[in-house]
Computed example of a mutant assay.
Amino acid sequence: MIPFYILFVTLLNSVRSSSAITIGSVTVTQIRDATAPNQNSNAYVVTSSKVREGFLVDTGVTNSTTSKLISVYQEQVLSTTKPPKFVFVTHGHPDHLGGIALIQQVYPTTPIYVITQQVAKEAVQWMNFSCTNGFSSAAQCAVNYSKVLRVLTSPRTQLAFNDRYAQINAFSVIVKGESSYAGLLGVTVASKFYWLFTGDAISILSHLFISNFFDNQILPASDDALCAWAGNMQASVCELQLSRREPKIFPGHGPISDVSSYEKDVARNVAWLRSIRNLTFNSCNKTYISDEMLRIFPEFGQTNFASIGALNMHVPADANSVGCNCTNDSPTICPVYHAPPTCMHLDINDTDTTLACSMRSTVWWPKGILKWILN
Rank of each mutant, 00 (worst) to 15 (best):
I2F: 02
V9T: 06
T10Q: 15
A20R: 14
G24L: 10
V26H: 00
T29R: 06
I31P: 06
I31Q: 11
T35N: 15
A36C: 11
Q39M: 09
N42G: 02
Y44R: 04
G54R: 01
L56P: 11
V57C: 00
S64Q: 09
T65R: 10
T65K: 03
K68L: 11
I70F: 01
S71H: 04
Q74K: 09
P83R: 06
P83H: 00
P83F: 00
F88R: 04
G98K: 11
A101K: 07
A101C: 11
Q104G: 13
Q105N: 08
T109F: 04
Y113S: 06
V114P: 07
Q117M: 14
Q118P: 00
K121G: 12
A123Y: 02
G134H: 05
A142S: 15
V148T: 12
T153N: 15
L159G: 12
F161W: 11
F161E: 05
N162A: 00
D163Q: 06
Y165Q: 13
A166S: 08
I168V: 15
A170D: 10
F171H: 13
S172G: 07
S172M: 09
S172D: 13
T188W: 00
V189T: 10
F193L: 14
Y194A: 07
L196W: 03
T198Y: 01
T198L: 08
L205T: 03
H207G: 01
L208K: 05
F213K: 13
L219T: 11
D224S: 08
A228F: 03
W229S: 06
W229H: 03
Q234D: 01
E239T: 02
I249S: 00
G252M: 10
G254L: 01
V259H: 13
S260C: 12
S261Y: 04
E263I: 12
V266K: 03
R274L: 00
R277A: 06
T280F: 06
N282S: 04
N285Y: 08
D291M: 14
E299D: 14
F300T: 04
Q302L: 08
T303K: 15
T303W: 03
L311N: 07
A319N: 02
T332K: 13
I333D: 02
Y337A: 11
P340K: 05
C343Y: 07
D350K: 03
M359W: 10
R360F: 02
W364H: 09
W364V: 04
P366R: 11
P366H: 07
